[in-house]
Simulated assay, not measured.
Amino acid sequence: MKKNQIKKVTILGAGAWGTALAHLFSSVAEKVFLWAYEQSVLDEINQQHSNHKYLAGYQLEKNIIATSDLQEACDNTQILIEAIPMVHLASVMKKIDKKHFLDIPFVVTSKGVHSKNLLLPTELLQTFGLSLNQLVVVVGPTFAKEIMKGDVSGFCIASQSVDNAQYIGNLLDRKHISVTYSDDIIGAQIGGVLKNIIALGVGMLMGQGAGENLRALALVKGFQELYLYGLYKGSKQETLVGVAGLGDMLLTSLSRTSKNCKAGFMVGEGHRELVKKTFTALPEGCNTVKLYFENDLFFQTNMPFCSAVYRVFWLEEDPNILVTVLQA
């Protein structure tokens, strides 16, 4: 795909991941509009071509244009990409006129569930008038900083539309980026949702000083529960054991660069109060585990490790219950 073959791409969300995606698409689009709600972030992107708050140390291309005006961001765009925390996705979508996303590919990167109905991102977006064929889920074990550095990474692109999946995949394809395709939209999202809970739990164990043996045991148990729940929801086995499931879980759970693992580490160390002080918003796994435990009987009765994460984080029980679960 030649640069500037696409006139305009829009990315909703100027956090680390939205900024990294803007960087990738800036090489294949004439203009990339990046919607940001923080004026200081917006000004820095437009004036200094950087985003120190969320992705410090990297220079952005000059064809990345930040705006706080959703109308300006979405008007006449050819591809719409959301990179918004799940807790805010619905409120942002309510402000966008449907005319802006009719008949264009809509890329989904949020990881989480919405409200007690436990709607996955694609399920929530369909309530705003988007068709399933428009939606393209892009997931995988990828940290924004490594994307910016050009490190080898892998994406899973899942869609009911082969054409839309291939279209987005071709735009993301690089020598250092491996792209795999799937029609398993549910499986691609389930992995991204549950891996945050598992990472939160593994972080709690790390904060307690758990050795590598115990961490490995937690990863095995966590993945067994992710796999079981994925099959329960109709996911394909190959999706769950690929980059969208196992791959994403391993990356998020083994690195304290991960917000969820870092938050868990603080709780395990006995510094629970630091979580709210450190993060502008709670990491996705914190809210997700609460929604699942309180609204999904299958989760409560068949996922003891993930349920223990809920009890430690929200009921403030002793993190040692995680070890008890793993020894059972």
Score class of each variant (00 low, 15 high):
I6Y: 13
K7T: 13
K7R: 15
K8N: 09
K8R: 11
G13R: 01
A14Y: 02
T19G: 06
L21Q: 10
A22S: 14
A22C: 13
Y37F: 12
Y37H: 15
V41F: 05
V41A: 07
D43M: 13
D43P: 08
Q48R: 14
K53D: 11
G57P: 08
Y58H: 14
Y58M: 09
L60W: 02
I65D: 06
T67M: 07
L70I: 13
Q71Y: 14
N76I: 01
Q78E: 15
I81S: 02
I81D: 08
V87W: 04
V87G: 06
V87A: 15
H88L: 13
L89C: 10
L89R: 00
A90G: 06
A90E: 14
V92A: 09
M93I: 03
K95T: 13
D97I: 04
K98M: 10
K98Y: 11
K99Q: 15
H100I: 05
H100P: 01
V107F: 07
G112T: 00
G112N: 03
K116L: 05
L120A: 08
P121V: 08
T127E: 15
F128E: 10
G129H: 12
L130K: 06
L130R: 01
L135Y: 04
V136Q: 03
G140V: 09
A144G: 05
I147N: 08
I147D: 04
M148W: 02
K149L: 15
K149H: 07
K149Y: 12
S153Y: 07
G154E: 15
A158S: 14
V162Q: 15
Y167P: 00
G169A: 11
G169F: 05
N170C: 11
K175S: 14
V179Q: 04
Y181G: 10
D184N: 05
I190C: 05
I190L: 12
L194T: 06
I197F: 02
A199I: 02
L200D: 05
G201A: 10
G207T: 10
Q208E: 09
R215A: 11
G222Y: 06
F223A: 09
L226E: 07
L226Y: 01
Y227K: 13
L228H: 12
L231H: 10
S235E: 04
K236M: 09
Q237C: 10
E238M: 11
L240S: 03
V243I: 14
L246A: 10
G247R: 00
G247V: 01
L250T: 10
L250C: 01
S253C: 12
S258L: 08
K262G: 09
M266I: 10
K276N: 07
L282K: 01
E284I: 09
E284P: 03
L291Q: 03
Y292R: 01
F293Y: 15
L297A: 13
Q300W: 00
M303V: 00
S307F: 04
A308E: 06
Y310I: 05
L315T: 02
P319V: 02
N320T: 13
T324N: 12
T324S: 15
Q327L: 14
Q327R: 15
A328S: 15
